[in-house]
């Protein structure tokens, strides 16, 4: 396999790793965004919580999670190696700074910076949602049939923290302990209330919401250059389709970050209206 390690450790080989992992991460963004649209369903979090439950328990998803971690790891690690290599290629810089031509975008020259800020965001994002969901005590929720509401609404505080009625469901907000007794009684499964967690983070820890929006801006610029650049690195540049890929990258770089940023903005507006 020496030819393979030689190929992948050359400058072009490393860029190929950046391109392939980068496009893979773009595909992840799409899946993540489409799934998270469930946050907007006004059904007491039923769709989103069921989706979260599936994403954190299904075997295939856990395997893909590992692939995703490897994808991020390879993208970040290779970028560090390339940055070092590129710095070494110009040990003595210009005394009078280079003035790039106007068609060269600032963000294409600062992918490391936009990527680093997105990485900082990613760490806080994982702490806020992934870590808390998996390892901290968070509220649970039980979805019961709607006709149960009149009967259940007077349940004592020791059994159920609070009860809501939304379209199609009676929503029982419970603690983990309460969930253990009440879920079997109703012959259903208690779910962690991810919807509630998301809402609390975005409204009570609003600085994360701001970091979220800022990071999405930078992600947009990162994607704007990265998407079309990845195809160039893979050897795909032609007057037939490069303009299309550049425009498609432009569209993705606006729609995907805007889609994500709409979530904290939605919760902030909802909380303060």
């Amino acid at each position: 396999m020496s030819w393979l390690s030689k190929t992948l450790s050359s400058t072009i080989g490393r860029k190929l790793i950046m391109a392939i992992t980068g496009l893979f991460l773009v595909s992840f963004l799409f899946v993540h965004l489409i799934g998270n649209v469930a946050l907007f369903y006004d059904d007491g979090g039923a769709s989103f919580n069921k989706y979260s439950h599936f994403m954190s328990t299904a075997g295939i998803i856990r395997v893909l999670e590992l692939v995703l971690v490897l994808g991020f790891g390879a993208h970040i690690w290779t970028s560090i190696q390339l940055t070092r290599l590129n710095k070494m290629a110009r040990p003595e810089g210009y005394a009078y700074e280079l003035k790039p031509a106007k068609e060269v975008s600032w963000f294409s020259r600062n992918m490391g910076l936009s990527g680093s800020i997105v990485l900082i965001f990613l760490v806080t994002h994982l702490q806020n949602f992934y870590y808390r969901y998996h390892y901290e005590e968070i509220p649970y929720v039980v979805y019961a049939p709607a006709q149960l509401y009149p009967q259940a609404k007077n349940a004592p505080k020791e059994v159920v923290t609070s009860i809501d009625s939304v379209a199609g469901h009676t929503v029982l907000h419970v603690t983990q302990k309460q969930a253990e007794t009440i879920a079997p009684q109703l012959n259903t499964e208690a779910l962690k209330d991810m919807q509630q967690l998301v809402q609390e983070v975005f409204t009570k820890e609003w600085w994360f919401a701001i970091l979220y929006v800022v990071a999405m801006f930078l992600l947009g610029f990162h994607l704007n250059h990265g998407f079309q650049s990845a195809f160039r690195t893979l050897g795909l540049a032609h007057k037939k389709y490069t303009p299309f890929l550049t425009n498609l990258g432009g569209l993705i770089s606006i729609l995907v970050p805007a889609g994500f940023a709409s979530m904290p903005i939605y919760f902030l507006i909802k909380a303060f209206m």
Binding site: T11, K15, L85, N86, V104, S108, R109, S229, T233
Partner: peptide
């Protein structure tokens, strides 16, 4: 690579 040139980021500064 042996000469120590850097990698390409496709900024387009060269072509410009």
């Amino acid at each position: 690579d042996a000469e120590g040139f850097g990698a390409c980021t496709n900024t387009g500064a060269c072509a410009a």
